[in-house]
Each structure stands twice: as structure tokens, then as C-alpha cells.
Amino acid sequence: MIVVFSLFLLSLLVVTAIAIVRSENLFSAVMLSGIFSLLMALNFFILDAADVALTEAAVGAGVSTVLLLGALALTPTEERRRKRERKVAATLVTVTMIFLAISYASFDQPRIGDPDAPVHRHVAPWYLEQTPELIDIPNVVTAVLGSFRGYDTLGEVYVVLTAGIGVLFLLSAGRPGLLPHRREPRIESSLKSHLIPHVVGRVLIPFIVLFGLYVQFHGEYGPGGGFQAGAIIAAGIILFALLEGEGAALKVLPPRVLVGLAIGGALLYLLVGVACMLLGGNFLDYSVLAADPVTGQQIGIILIELGVGLAVTGTLLSIFHAFAAREQ
């Protein structure tokens, strides 16, 4: 039964992707890409990846859509009418041929869900076996993310931070300073005049932030962790900015604080690693953080997840405000 469901959802993905490419209005393309992300999250959930589904739903459907809309406020929203070109036809033929080649090659691949596939025979069984012993937290994904492959995650956090700094540099051109100013915007673009969305949104914001904190600190026991929590909290504060206007949101969390959060979170991660070295262990080997190695691992994972959450919240909000400040 679940097979029918997953086939249906996978087919919908392809249909939505074609609709995104075909639509000439960029607003509808952005909305369709939000639907695409939600469908993708459903597919991930069916494929047993609860953590990834949560991330995709918060990041892809929430933050990404807001950023694209923010960019569309600064660019034309209609694609120029396309002429039928020979180049397009040639591209279409080429991609169809590559698609057929990939489909043909898939016959040599192990079937989806095959427990004997090479990917399941390598390190994965070791992770599943050793996590209860070495780290003793239920969520293996968090354990691998935070401890076993902590180097990777450290790198990813710094990639996110670098991208945020890049956006700030690009969008601060033509005005003094890197950060958006806290001056009152000329046109207050809030939803204050729309009574019902305004009231309902204000009721929802505390619950969104609370849910973000739950996801952050429950990440060791269930699906969740710093990346998801960062995206959810950022989405809640972006909702606040949309409801009350840019100025009010910047008054609550000034740009300096946001950049501080991003850098502070990334530094916290790095310093946990350095602290492990100073205490006589390897870089990011949390076992030395407490007398009992298992407790040390748990402390380390909670700390670095906190760092990831702060860094992701700060970076996403800085990016959002950079786009919004450019509009004025």
C-alpha cells in the first residue's frame, strides 16, 4: 500500500518540476517550488528520513520561499516571452537522451530498500551498533551528525556562515557599512492594516519559537537538531517581521546581534573542538569533556547543536534583512 503512495508522490514531484520550468510568471514558479519542497519532504518521510523531512519542510518550503519572494520584489516578476528557438529543441533532445541513459543504467543498480546493497554493508551497521554504547542517545542521525562525523558538520556550518557574509557584502554595496541600518523605513510594509492575519500571526509566533526550541533540545531523542531548529526559529522571526514591519523586527533583534549570533554559534562549535584538544583528546572528540566518556559525548553534542542552531538562525535572518533593506 505504501508503495502506491510513494509512487504517486514521486510522480507528483516530476509534474511539479515541469510546471516550475514551464510557468512564465516567476511568482507562480516560486509558489510551485514551495509545493515541490513540501512534496520532497513527504517523500523523505516515506523513505524513513524524518530528520531530513523536517529540515526540508522548514528550509525549503519556509525560508527559501520567503527569500525568493524577497528577491522578486527587486527584480521583474514576468519572464520575457520566449520564442521557439532551435537551441531549446536541441537541449530538450539532449536532456531526454541523458535521462534515458540514466534510466538504462539504473537496471544495474540494487533495488531501493535492498538490505544487501553495498551502501548498507559499509559503516552504517557500525554506527547503528555503537551509538547506544558509545554515545547513548536514541537518535542515530544526531549522533553521526554531531560526533562521528563532527568534522563534516563543522565544515557545513562555516559554509553557511560564509554564504551569509557573501550575501551581506553583495547587498550592502552603495551604502556605508556592511549591516542594514535601523532607520525607520519610508514605507512601512507591515500587515498591520490586515486585521485577521495580523492577530492570528501574533498568536502563532510564540508557539513557532517554542516548537523551534523543542526541536533544538529534543534532537537527541527524536527527529530534530540545530539545523532544523535554526530554520524554524528564523521562520518565526521572519513572520514577525512580515506582520509588524521590518523596523520592529530590527528593533527586537538588531543586525549586529544577528551577525553576532551567527559568528558566535560557529565559534562555539570550533571552541568545543579546541577544548577537547586542550583536555588531551583529539579535535572534536568529546569523550574527554567529562569524567565519563559517554556523558562527555552527550555534553559535546548538546553544545555543538546549540552552536549550529545559533549560527543557522543568525545567518538566515541576516540574509533576510539584507534583502529587505535593499528594497527601500
Binding site: H194, I196, P197, V200, G201, V203, L204
Partner: peptide
């Protein structure tokens, strides 16, 4: 509960 609050709000915002 969440859906019952947000659904009609979204519909209202769209119609408005």
C-alpha cells in the same frame, strides 16, 4: 487546532 486557525486565515488573506 493549528490547521483550524491557519487554514481560514490563509483563505481570508488570499480573498482579501
Amino acid at each position: 487546532l493549528f490547521l483550524l486557525i491557519t487554514g481560514p486565515t490563509a483563505t481570508y488573506a488570499l480573498g482579501h
